[in-house]
Amino acid sequence: MDKKQRSKKQKSTEAPRHIFQLLWAVITNSFVTGFIQGRIYTGSLKNLCVPGLNCYSCPGALGSCPIGSLQSLISSRNYKFTFYVSGFLIFIGAVFGRFVCGWLCPFGLVQDLLHKIPFPKKLRTFRGDKILRKLKYVILLVFVIILPMVIVDITGQGDPWFCKYICPAGMLQGGLPLTLLNEGLRDTIGFLYAWKFVILAITVILSIIIYRPFCKYICPLGAIYSFFNKISVFTLRCDKEKCVECGKCGKVCKMNVDPKEAPNHSECIRCGLCEKNCPTGAISCNWKTGSNKNSENIKPENNDEY
Protein backbone atom coordinates (compact mmCIF):
# COMPACT_ATOMS: atom_id res chain seq x y z
CA MET A 1 0.00 0.00 0.00
CA ASP A 2 1.60 3.29 -1.03
CA LYS A 3 1.64 6.46 1.08
CA LYS A 4 -1.38 8.03 -0.69
CA GLN A 5 -3.56 4.94 -0.21
CA ARG A 6 -2.48 4.61 3.40
CA SER A 7 -3.39 8.21 4.16
CA LYS A 8 -6.74 7.75 2.37
CA LYS A 9 -7.51 4.69 4.51
CA GLN A 10 -6.46 6.50 7.68
CA LYS A 11 -8.71 9.42 6.73
CA SER A 12 -11.72 7.19 6.25
CA THR A 13 -11.18 5.46 9.60
CA GLU A 14 -11.05 8.81 11.39
CA ALA A 15 -14.26 10.19 9.90
CA PRO A 16 -16.67 8.58 12.44
CA ARG A 17 -14.67 10.02 15.34
CA HIS A 18 -14.65 13.50 13.79
CA ILE A 19 -18.40 13.32 13.21
CA PHE A 20 -18.87 12.32 16.86
CA GLN A 21 -16.57 15.14 18.04
CA LEU A 22 -18.45 17.63 15.89
CA LEU A 23 -21.85 16.47 17.12
CA TRP A 24 -20.71 16.71 20.74
CA ALA A 25 -19.25 20.18 20.17
CA VAL A 26 -22.50 21.34 18.53
CA ILE A 27 -24.72 19.83 21.26
CA THR A 28 -22.71 21.40 24.11
CA ASN A 29 -22.51 24.76 22.33
CA SER A 30 -26.03 24.97 20.97
CA PHE A 31 -27.19 28.27 22.50
CA VAL A 32 -27.67 29.88 19.10
CA THR A 33 -29.09 33.13 20.54
CA GLY A 34 -25.69 33.79 22.10
CA PHE A 35 -24.03 33.82 18.69
CA ILE A 36 -26.70 36.12 17.29
CA GLN A 37 -26.82 38.60 20.16
CA GLY A 38 -23.20 38.49 21.35
CA ARG A 39 -24.02 37.25 24.85
CA ILE A 40 -23.70 34.01 26.80
CA TYR A 41 -26.16 31.42 28.11
CA THR A 42 -27.18 32.10 31.72
CA GLY A 43 -29.42 29.12 32.44
CA SER A 44 -29.11 26.54 35.19
CA LEU A 45 -27.39 23.96 32.97
CA LYS A 46 -24.21 25.86 33.74
CA ASN A 47 -24.27 24.24 37.16
CA LEU A 48 -22.81 21.28 35.30
CA CYS A 49 -19.34 20.95 33.83
CA VAL A 50 -18.66 19.47 30.41
CA PRO A 51 -15.87 16.87 30.25
CA GLY A 52 -13.70 18.64 27.65
CA LEU A 53 -11.99 22.03 27.45
CA ASN A 54 -14.94 24.24 26.50
CA CYS A 55 -14.86 27.88 27.60
CA TYR A 56 -18.00 28.88 29.52
CA SER A 57 -17.76 32.28 27.93
CA CYS A 58 -18.36 30.81 24.48
CA PRO A 59 -21.67 32.38 23.36
CA GLY A 60 -23.09 28.94 22.64
CA ALA A 61 -21.81 27.08 25.71
CA LEU A 62 -24.50 25.30 27.72
CA GLY A 63 -22.15 23.91 30.38
CA SER A 64 -19.14 25.01 32.38
CA CYS A 65 -15.48 24.45 31.62
CA PRO A 66 -14.01 22.11 34.27
CA ILE A 67 -10.64 23.91 34.35
CA GLY A 68 -12.28 27.34 34.60
CA SER A 69 -14.60 26.08 37.35
CA LEU A 70 -11.72 24.47 39.22
CA GLN A 71 -9.73 27.72 39.23
CA SER A 72 -12.76 29.81 40.00
CA LEU A 73 -13.48 27.84 43.18
CA ILE A 74 -9.96 27.40 44.50
CA SER A 75 -9.23 31.08 43.92
CA SER A 76 -12.39 32.23 45.70
CA ARG A 77 -12.37 33.45 49.26
CA ASN A 78 -15.06 30.93 50.24
CA TYR A 79 -13.51 27.72 48.95
CA LYS A 80 -9.87 26.74 48.80
CA PHE A 81 -10.64 23.23 47.65
CA THR A 82 -13.47 22.07 45.44
CA PHE A 83 -15.05 18.68 46.07
CA TYR A 84 -17.56 19.24 43.29
CA VAL A 85 -15.19 19.89 40.40
CA SER A 86 -12.47 17.55 41.70
CA GLY A 87 -15.08 14.80 42.10
CA PHE A 88 -16.34 15.46 38.57
CA LEU A 89 -12.82 15.20 37.15
CA ILE A 90 -12.12 12.01 39.13
CA PHE A 91 -15.41 10.48 37.98
CA ILE A 92 -14.92 11.34 34.31
CA GLY A 93 -11.23 10.33 34.43
CA ALA A 94 -12.01 7.01 36.15
CA VAL A 95 -14.71 6.12 33.65
CA PHE A 96 -13.28 7.46 30.39
CA GLY A 97 -9.61 8.37 30.92
CA ARG A 98 -8.29 10.38 27.98
CA PHE A 99 -11.12 9.15 25.76
CA VAL A 100 -12.45 12.62 26.56
CA CYS A 101 -9.46 14.20 24.76
CA GLY A 102 -9.96 12.07 21.67
CA TRP A 103 -13.73 12.23 21.41
CA LEU A 104 -15.33 14.88 23.63
CA CYS A 105 -13.07 17.93 23.53
CA PRO A 106 -13.99 20.73 21.09
CA PHE A 107 -10.48 22.16 21.18
CA GLY A 108 -9.11 18.70 20.37
CA LEU A 109 -11.37 18.64 17.32
CA VAL A 110 -10.07 22.04 16.21
CA GLN A 111 -6.50 20.76 16.42
CA ASP A 112 -7.40 17.51 14.63
CA LEU A 113 -8.88 19.48 11.73
CA LEU A 114 -5.99 21.95 11.60
CA HIS A 115 -3.53 19.05 11.33
CA LYS A 116 -5.28 17.94 8.16
CA ILE A 117 -4.09 21.11 6.39
CA PRO A 118 -1.24 20.09 4.07
CA PHE A 119 2.23 21.21 5.11
CA PRO A 120 5.56 20.26 3.47
CA LYS A 121 7.15 18.88 6.62
CA LYS A 122 4.86 17.59 9.36
CA LEU A 123 6.73 16.89 12.59
CA ARG A 124 5.96 13.52 14.17
CA THR A 125 8.53 13.97 16.90
CA PHE A 126 11.55 16.12 17.67
CA ARG A 127 14.35 16.47 20.16
CA GLY A 128 12.90 17.50 23.51
CA ASP A 129 9.42 16.14 22.72
CA LYS A 130 9.49 13.73 25.67
CA ILE A 131 10.52 16.42 28.17
CA LEU A 132 8.03 18.94 26.76
CA ARG A 133 5.18 16.49 27.43
CA LYS A 134 5.82 16.98 31.15
CA LEU A 135 5.12 20.71 30.78
CA LYS A 136 1.35 20.17 31.03
CA TYR A 137 1.81 18.79 34.57
CA VAL A 138 3.81 21.86 35.56
CA ILE A 139 1.10 24.10 34.08
CA LEU A 140 -1.57 22.17 36.00
CA LEU A 141 0.30 22.52 39.27
CA VAL A 142 1.48 26.11 38.90
CA PHE A 143 -1.13 27.95 36.81
CA VAL A 144 -4.29 26.01 37.68
CA ILE A 145 -3.69 25.19 41.35
CA ILE A 146 -0.90 27.10 43.12
CA LEU A 147 -1.10 30.62 41.65
CA PRO A 148 -4.91 30.98 41.82
CA MET A 149 -4.84 29.66 45.38
CA VAL A 150 -1.87 31.64 46.69
CA ILE A 151 -1.80 35.00 44.87
CA VAL A 152 -4.91 36.76 46.15
CA ASP A 153 -6.02 40.37 46.57
CA ILE A 154 -6.96 42.00 49.87
CA THR A 155 -10.41 40.43 49.74
CA GLY A 156 -8.88 36.94 49.39
CA GLN A 157 -9.87 36.56 45.73
CA GLY A 158 -7.35 35.14 43.23
CA ASP A 159 -7.14 35.12 39.43
CA PRO A 160 -7.77 32.19 37.07
CA TRP A 161 -4.15 32.23 35.89
CA PHE A 162 -4.41 29.53 33.27
CA CYS A 163 -7.56 30.98 31.71
CA LYS A 164 -6.19 34.50 31.87
CA TYR A 165 -2.68 34.06 30.52
CA ILE A 166 -2.51 30.74 28.65
CA CYS A 167 -5.78 29.19 27.47
CA PRO A 168 -6.18 29.61 23.68
CA ALA A 169 -9.59 27.89 23.81
CA GLY A 170 -11.01 30.84 25.73
CA MET A 171 -9.78 33.18 23.03
CA LEU A 172 -11.09 31.05 20.18
CA GLN A 173 -14.47 30.15 21.68
CA GLY A 174 -15.13 33.24 23.77
CA GLY A 175 -12.79 36.13 23.00
CA LEU A 176 -13.09 36.21 19.21
CA PRO A 177 -16.86 35.72 18.83
CA LEU A 178 -17.79 38.02 21.73
CA THR A 179 -15.58 40.90 20.63
CA LEU A 180 -16.84 40.52 17.07
CA LEU A 181 -20.47 40.52 18.14
CA ASN A 182 -20.40 42.81 21.16
CA GLU A 183 -19.31 46.40 20.57
CA GLY A 184 -19.03 47.19 24.28
CA LEU A 185 -16.48 44.42 24.76
CA ARG A 186 -14.65 45.36 21.56
CA ASP A 187 -13.92 48.81 22.96
CA THR A 188 -12.14 47.37 26.00
CA ILE A 189 -9.55 45.15 24.34
CA GLY A 190 -5.93 45.77 25.24
CA PHE A 191 -2.59 44.06 25.80
CA LEU A 192 -4.02 40.90 27.37
CA TYR A 193 -6.24 40.37 24.36
CA ALA A 194 -3.26 40.76 22.02
CA TRP A 195 -1.21 38.35 24.18
CA LYS A 196 -3.92 35.71 24.09
CA PHE A 197 -4.43 36.23 20.37
CA VAL A 198 -0.73 35.57 19.77
CA ILE A 199 -0.93 32.37 21.87
CA LEU A 200 -3.92 31.25 19.81
CA ALA A 201 -2.13 32.06 16.54
CA ILE A 202 0.94 30.07 17.63
CA THR A 203 -1.28 27.14 18.64
CA VAL A 204 -3.03 27.21 15.26
CA ILE A 205 0.23 27.28 13.30
CA LEU A 206 1.83 24.55 15.42
CA SER A 207 -1.29 22.39 15.09
CA ILE A 208 -0.79 22.31 11.33
CA ILE A 209 2.78 21.04 11.75
CA ILE A 210 2.50 18.91 14.91
CA TYR A 211 -0.45 16.71 15.87
CA ARG A 212 -2.33 18.25 18.84
CA PRO A 213 0.50 20.35 20.33
CA PHE A 214 -1.78 21.90 22.94
CA CYS A 215 -2.95 18.47 24.16
CA LYS A 216 0.57 17.05 24.20
CA TYR A 217 2.39 19.89 25.94
CA ILE A 218 0.03 22.40 27.56
CA CYS A 219 -3.45 21.10 28.45
CA PRO A 220 -3.95 20.75 32.23
CA LEU A 221 -7.22 18.90 31.66
CA GLY A 222 -5.44 16.26 29.60
CA ALA A 223 -2.83 16.09 32.36
CA ILE A 224 -5.55 15.32 34.93
CA TYR A 225 -7.21 12.66 32.79
CA SER A 226 -3.82 11.10 31.97
CA PHE A 227 -3.47 10.07 35.64
CA PHE A 228 -6.53 7.86 35.17
CA ASN A 229 -5.66 6.22 31.84
CA LYS A 230 -4.16 3.19 33.56
CA ILE A 231 -7.24 2.47 35.68
CA SER A 232 -10.12 3.88 33.63
CA VAL A 233 -13.11 1.66 33.04
CA PHE A 234 -12.99 2.39 29.32
CA THR A 235 -9.73 0.81 28.34
CA LEU A 236 -7.50 -0.23 25.47
CA ARG A 237 -6.18 -3.78 25.32
CA CYS A 238 -3.64 -5.61 23.23
CA ASP A 239 -4.02 -9.37 22.96
CA LYS A 240 -0.50 -10.76 22.80
CA GLU A 241 -1.82 -14.05 21.40
CA LYS A 242 -3.22 -12.32 18.34
CA CYS A 243 -0.45 -9.74 17.96
CA VAL A 244 1.94 -10.51 15.10
CA GLU A 245 4.37 -7.72 16.08
CA CYS A 246 3.93 -5.92 12.75
CA GLY A 247 4.30 -2.53 14.51
CA LYS A 248 1.47 -0.96 12.50
CA CYS A 249 -0.30 0.30 15.64
CA GLY A 250 2.73 2.28 16.80
CA LYS A 251 3.28 3.71 13.31
CA VAL A 252 -0.26 5.06 12.93
CA CYS A 253 -0.45 6.52 16.44
CA LYS A 254 -0.28 10.29 16.17
CA MET A 255 0.34 10.69 19.89
CA ASN A 256 3.47 8.53 19.44
CA VAL A 257 2.34 5.79 21.78
CA ASP A 258 3.14 2.13 21.12
CA PRO A 259 -0.18 0.39 21.97
CA LYS A 260 1.44 -3.04 21.74
CA GLU A 261 3.79 -2.21 24.62
CA ALA A 262 1.66 0.21 26.64
CA PRO A 263 -1.98 0.28 25.54
CA ASN A 264 -2.98 2.51 28.44
CA HIS A 265 -0.11 4.92 28.31
CA SER A 266 -0.88 8.36 29.76
CA GLU A 267 -0.56 9.96 26.30
CA CYS A 268 -3.15 7.68 24.63
CA ILE A 269 -6.28 9.65 23.74
CA ARG A 270 -8.26 6.52 22.72
CA CYS A 271 -8.73 7.74 19.16
CA GLY A 272 -8.98 4.11 18.07
CA LEU A 273 -6.69 4.45 15.05
CA CYS A 274 -4.49 1.59 16.25
CA GLU A 275 -7.53 -0.65 16.72
CA LYS A 276 -8.78 0.08 13.22
CA ASN A 277 -5.38 -0.46 11.63
CA CYS A 278 -4.52 -3.67 13.48
CA PRO A 279 -4.51 -6.47 10.84
CA THR A 280 -5.31 -9.24 13.33
CA GLY A 281 -7.80 -7.49 15.63
CA ALA A 282 -5.43 -7.81 18.58
CA ILE A 283 -6.18 -4.30 19.82
CA SER A 284 -9.55 -3.44 21.24
CA CYS A 285 -11.15 -0.51 23.02
CA ASN A 286 -13.84 -1.59 25.46
CA TRP A 287 -15.30 -1.36 28.94
CA LYS A 288 -13.76 -4.54 30.23
CA THR A 289 -10.35 -5.45 31.52
CA GLY A 290 -8.84 -8.90 31.78
CA SER A 291 -6.59 -10.93 34.02
CA ASN A 292 -5.40 -13.02 31.09
CA LYS A 293 -1.61 -12.98 31.02
CA ASN A 294 -1.66 -12.70 27.23
CA SER A 295 -3.45 -9.40 27.23
CA GLU A 296 -1.62 -6.33 28.39
CA ASN A 297 -3.44 -3.28 29.61
CA ILE A 298 -1.10 -1.84 32.24
CA LYS A 299 2.48 -1.48 31.17
CA PRO A 300 3.35 2.19 30.92
CA GLU A 301 6.98 2.01 32.04
CA ASN A 302 8.14 0.16 28.93
CA ASN A 303 7.03 2.81 26.49
CA ASP A 304 9.85 4.96 25.21
CA GLU A 305 8.22 5.62 21.88
CA TYR A 306 8.21 9.38 22.14
Binding site: R39, K46, S64, S72
Partner: peptide, 28 residues
Amino acid sequence: MMIFGIYRGEAEAVLAKAVRICLECIGI
Protein backbone atom coordinates in the same frame (compact mmCIF):
# COMPACT_ATOMS: atom_id res chain seq x y z
CA MET B 1 -17.10 14.06 46.29
CA MET B 2 -19.50 15.69 43.83
CA ILE B 3 -22.42 15.09 46.17
CA PHE B 4 -20.51 16.60 49.08
CA GLY B 5 -19.49 19.54 46.88
CA ILE B 6 -23.10 20.16 45.88
CA TYR B 7 -24.07 19.99 49.56
CA ARG B 8 -21.42 22.68 50.29
CA GLY B 9 -22.96 24.92 47.64
CA GLU B 10 -20.14 24.62 45.12
CA ALA B 11 -22.47 23.98 42.17
CA GLU B 12 -24.11 27.36 42.75
CA ALA B 13 -20.66 28.97 42.90
CA VAL B 14 -19.80 27.38 39.54
CA LEU B 15 -23.07 28.65 38.11
CA ALA B 16 -22.51 32.15 39.49
CA LYS B 17 -19.13 32.31 37.74
CA ALA B 18 -20.28 30.68 34.50
CA VAL B 19 -23.31 32.91 33.86
CA ARG B 20 -21.16 36.04 33.73
CA ILE B 21 -18.75 36.63 30.88
CA CYS B 22 -15.33 35.62 32.18
CA LEU B 23 -13.27 38.65 31.16
CA GLU B 24 -9.99 36.93 32.01
CA CYS B 25 -10.88 33.96 29.79
CA ILE B 26 -11.62 36.13 26.76
CA GLY B 27 -8.57 38.34 27.21
CA ILE B 28 -10.25 41.52 28.42
